[in-house]
Design a protein around this nucleic acid. Structure first.
Lengths: 243, 243
DNA sequence: TAGTGGTCTAGACCACGAG
DNA sequence: TCGTGGTCTAGACCACTAA
């Protein structure tokens, strides 16, 4: 890797940042790997420690790297904690986040609807994997989810028995498929409970539900997953903090 | 101001950060004021430019200061743009944020309900200002809002005719009352439209609405405003991006 | 004790904005 | 042209971790 230092070129620290992201999204460095020390990188790249430091600082702020004083810098491990605290916004009436249980109803291959194809940026009619599941919070069926994945990287998902899909799918995508979910874009609406959801959640048909359409994006902003969640907000709510 | 440099003390740059925030939330520096240059602050505080720089960098990341190359560093101006883009999450079906129009229905003084008092951290039964208004998006009545403010700093709000309250209240709080809204905590639920809201929004009673309960917090995290918005999500939705 | 990140310094040069 | 923030260097010392 050679850094360019001319006039019209990006600042060194941004070039280094891109290089580090490439190592991670290219699979050379895996989640929870220790990366070379700041001094080592600085020597390899013939820049000062401060310049490497600035690149790493921005990646730490993006939750892509994690610094541990005295130990080194690691590729972020987007595990249960992160999935739960960053991407799961449903809390109980006391404002406490509780881990949901999931029961998978089906997991099969099908052709993408127009919506699914467009959200996942696939050609219309592409083959996708579709998962339907019910999530319980504090013993109460609260969320019905329909999850759509491009069949291309994820076709192996259908092979295991449908029922043993893990609760935290993002962890699975990362460990089994090397797809790290880094960002999510959500659209929220209030809807009237459709028949099937109503019966799964044990609420009257037509009662108000919170519908969340989420696109999960990778480190390089490729769409990974489309997830439509229909949530009863009788005993829980969606929490968001804006800075 | 003297910085402490002993063992158990905070890093210098954090002490400087606190000092700068104090100047702003204390009213010594007002929104869109130019603050002293990095070099000048460094000399006054007897630290290096890099240390001041680190403090300022963090405040820029928090949207409290704004840097302008060649000109200087300014106190952030939390004006229309910011209010619109940071705190307003309702977009139309094309994902486009549109400026709402507001029609104020009432603006009066009353005693806080238990909920209002607890959210605003006031003694129960305190005097508060309560505003009710309807907001139109793209010509369509979409949101009914009930806004509650502590009467103590805000009692002047009742004096003008109720109808000429501005559309962007956070700008008013900042300019008229020196209260800058920096953070908001939102709780979202789906509810069945109550009678009054239904008639204001021209939807059937009981139809699903998105209810947003928002607490707006100041720079020092004091609660400033409680706002309950009931939104029709037929032609619009609530948008959120998670990193 | 050796190696890591965390803080801090004192300087250099560049890019930009205003007069 | 001058002062600002933006980038970059080469060092110093501290705090923490692991061997």
């Amino acid at each position: 890797m050679v850094l360019s230092t001319g006039k019209g070129s990006l600042p060194l620290y941004l070039q280094i940042k891109e290089m580090l992201v490439a190592k991670i999204s290219g699979g050379e460095w895996l989640p929870s790997d220790l990366i070379p020390s700041e001094l080592q990188l600085a020597q390899e790249l013939s820049v000062s420690q401060g310049t490497v430091r600035k690149a790493i600082t921005e990646l730490v702020e993006n939750n892509i790297l994690v610094r541990k004083q005295g130990r080194g810098t690691f590729v972020a491990n987007h595990d249960t904690q992160r999935a739960l605290f960053h991407f799961f916004h449903i809390v109980n009436d006391d404002g406490v986040k509780v881990l949901p249980n999931s029961r998978t109803l089906s997991c099969r291959r099908k052709r993408a609807t127009r919506l699914e194809a467009s959200r996942l940026q696939l050609p219309s009619g592409s083959s996708v994997v579709s998962i339907e599941r019910v999530r319980e919070l504090e013993g109460r069926a609260t969320i019905v989810e329909v999850i759509t994945l491009s069949a291309d990287p994820f076709s192996n998902l259908i092979k295991p028995k449908a029922c043993d899909l893990p609760n935290m799918l993002y962890e699975l995508y990362e460990k089994q498929f090397g797809m790290t979910v880094h960002t999510a874009e959500e659209k929220l609406r209030a809807i009237a409970a459709p028949k099937r959801t109503a019966s799964l959640l044990n609420v009257p048909e037509g009662s108000p539900l919170l519908e969340i359409e989420r696109i999960a994006l990778g480190l390089d902003r490729t769409p990974i997953e489309l997830r439509i969640s229909q949530c009863s907000t009788v005993k829980h709510y969606y929490q968001n903090t804006v800075f």
